[in-house]
Structure formats: structure tokens, C-alpha cells
């Protein structure tokens, strides 16, 4: 089992004719993902990566039955692409694009409230259910099928965690990045709820980082609602305050959002902590043994 995407997911790629869109669509198809359509305004009627391209999302959905959309549209137009997918009724949208203005994401956030579309990202690596479906840029060959869920704000740190798990023979049910921006779609809590309900997931690894309060909210959820074991790593304990560390959302302001504060919240919720990013595999192994 897995969450959000599986072998039946029918994927539409918005921005399939761009360089990144094309390259990574190819890798998704090679992995076995059912990419059924592409969408780029003005390129309707052509094909890209062997799939038909449409001018609008609504047309792509009508013609191909796409039920998830993967967005590689450049930042100035990416928020509009998310809105279009939601307007067309796509239930799951995964936006890889980095650098979307905050004001655009405020609009997206308010539009999506009360609609049935779930958004993953933006500024995220996408989602993979190993052996079933890969949507985005997570390297497929480091993943292996199994029963640990992994969720992360960072992309590369997600790959690192997956790699450490796979090397120890620990497979994954679903792995995804929620994105490094201050305003993102799905939260850690949303992810944890899904993993808690998924019969194919035995334990969850959470990768947090400095800035915001998503980790503290996750800790509260874990403490009050979660029956499955959870382990976590929080990046940025050496980051200086007041400086943005690459991700738009990764900034310590005042006493808010420090790694220490987040680790303390996780510890208080009974979460096993990886103190070093090199210990992720060991800590999850320990978590599964003591279950």
C-alpha cells in the first residue's frame, strides 16, 4: 500500500515541453509511472515524451482521464498553473517549481481552501510510491518498496534519508517532499494523518528544518493522535539567526523556529531523534526493532 499515488495514478504534466519538464517526465515514464498527458499552452495537438499535449488542463483531463497533475511551469506562471489544475477538478497537484512569489501563493492558498484539490509543494521534489509511481524529481533507483513513510521539507535531504533506509534494507511505502517555501499545500500533519491511516505503512520518518512551526504542529499531532512510531531529523542547528538558508521558509526569526526548539517538541512527543543526518538509517532501524 501507499498514500496519495499508486500504480493506477494517471499523470498529467503541466510544462512538459520545457527542458526540466521533458527530462524528468522521461525519468518518470522510465520508472513506470502512467504519464497520460502533457499540457503547454500553444503546443496543443503535438506530442512530447510520447504523450499527447493539450492547451488547457480541462481538455487534458477530459481526453485522458488524468487524475494527478505534476507542474514544472516557470515561477512567474506556476501559481496560475496550480489554480488551473484545481479549477479543472484535479484532486492532487504536485508543484515542483521553485521561486513562486509569496503573494501568488497567498492567492492559491485562499482559492484552494474549501476545494477538493490537495496540493503538494511548491518548491518540492514531488512524491514517489516505490515500485508504483514516481511524480517529480526524486531519484527512483535509491528507493525500494517497503513499509516506512518518509516526509520532508527538503528535497535532497529526502533523497539522503531514502538512500540510508534502502541501504539498510528498509523499504518505503511512500516518500514525499512538502516543499521549502513559507506557504505550501500539504503540511506534515496532513502527511502524518495519511500514513497513520495507511495499512501499508508501519513507521514514519519526518525531516524538518529551521523556520516556521510546521514541526511543532506535527509534534502535537503525533503526541495526541499517532499510534505508529515516528522518528525525525531537523536540519539547521548551526544556521545563524535572521539569515535565510536557501529555502524561502528556512529562517530563524527571534527565538522562533530554531532547530533546538523543534527537536525539543519532537522529543516531548516521543519521537526518536536522529541527531546527525548520517544517523537517519540507524535511528529508523532502531525504531522498527523496538516496535
Amino acid at each position: 500500500m501507499s498514500v496519495l499515488v499508486d500504480a493506477d495514478s494517471r499523470v498529467l504534466v503541466q510544462g512538459i515541453t520545457g527542458r526540466e519538464g521533458g527530462f524528468h517526465t522521461r525519468l518518470c515514464i522510465d520508472y513506470g509511472t502512467r504519464v497520460v498527458a502533457g499540457m503547454t499552452p500553444g503546443k496543443g495537438g503535438t506530442t512530447a515524451e510520447g504523450v499527447p499535449v493539450f492547451n488547457t488542463v480541462v481538455e487534458a483531463v477530459r481526453e485522458t482521464g488524468a487524475d494527478v497533475s505534476l507542474i514544472f511551469v516557470p515561477a512567474p506562471f506556476a501559481a496560475d498553473a496550480i489554480l488551473e489544475a484545481s479549477d479543472a477538478g484535479v484532486p492532487l497537484v504536485v508543484c515542483i517549481t521553485e521561486g513562486i512569489p509569496v503573494r501568488d501563493m497567498v492567492t492559491v492558498h485562499h482559492y484552494l481552501a474549501g476545494r477538493k484539490t490537495r496540493l503538494i509543494g511548491p518548491n518540492c521534489p514531488g512524491i514517489i510510491s516505490p515500485g508504483k509511481c514516481k511524480m517529480g524529481i526524486i531519484p527512483g533507483d535509491v528507493c525500494r518498496e517497503g513499509r516506512v513513510g518518509v516526509v520532508s521539507r527538503s528535497g535532497t535531504l529526502l533523497y539522503e534519508a531514502i538512500d540510508q533506509l534502502s541501504r539498510r534494507g528498509i523499504g518505503q511505502s511512500t516518500c514525499f517532499g512538502i516543499g521549502g517555501d513559507p506557504i505550501v499545500g500539504m503540511s506534515f500533519v496532513d502527511a502524518l494523518e495519511l500514513f497513520e491511516q495507511d495499512t501499508g505503512t508501519d513507521a514514519v520518518f519526518v525531516i524538518g528544518e529551521i523556520g516556521g512551526t510546521a514541526e511543532q504542529e506535527a509534534a502535537r499531532y503525533i503526541k495526541s493522535r499517532m499510534s505508529k512510531p515516528v522518528a525525525a531529523f531537523v536540519a539547521g542547528s548551526t544556521a545563524p539567526p535572521g539569515r535565510r538558508m536557501g529555502h524561502a521558509g528556512a529562517i530563524v526569526t527571534g527565538s522562533q523556529g530554531t532547530a533546538q526548539e523543534k527537536v525539543a517538541a519532537f522529543s516531548a512527543a516521543g519521537v526518536a531523534i536522529a541527531r546527525s543526518p548520517a544517523e537517519i538509517g540507524v535511528v529508523v532501524e532502531g525504531l522498527l526493532k523496538h516496535r
Binding site: 520532508s152 521539507r153 527538503s154 528535497g155 535532497t156 535531504l157 529526502l158 539522503e160 521549502g180 525531516i207 528544518e209 529551521i210 531529523f233 536540519a235 539547521g236 542547528s237 548551526t238 544556521a239 538558508m245 536557501g246 529555502h247 528556512a250 532547530a259 541527531r275 546527525s276 543526518p277 548520517a278
Partner: peptide, 17 residues
């Protein structure tokens, strides 16, 4: 020199450890 903000932060943490 790291790719990705999360891994870059984690690399700093790791060096200090």
C-alpha cells in the same frame, strides 16, 4: 558546495558534529 537547501544545512550540522 551542496545541492538543495536542506542537505546544505544538514552538511553544516554534520561538519560541526
Amino acid at each position: 558546495v551542496v545541492n538543495g537547501a536542506g542537505l546544505a544545512m544538514a552538511t553544516m550540522d554534520l561538519i560541526q558534529l
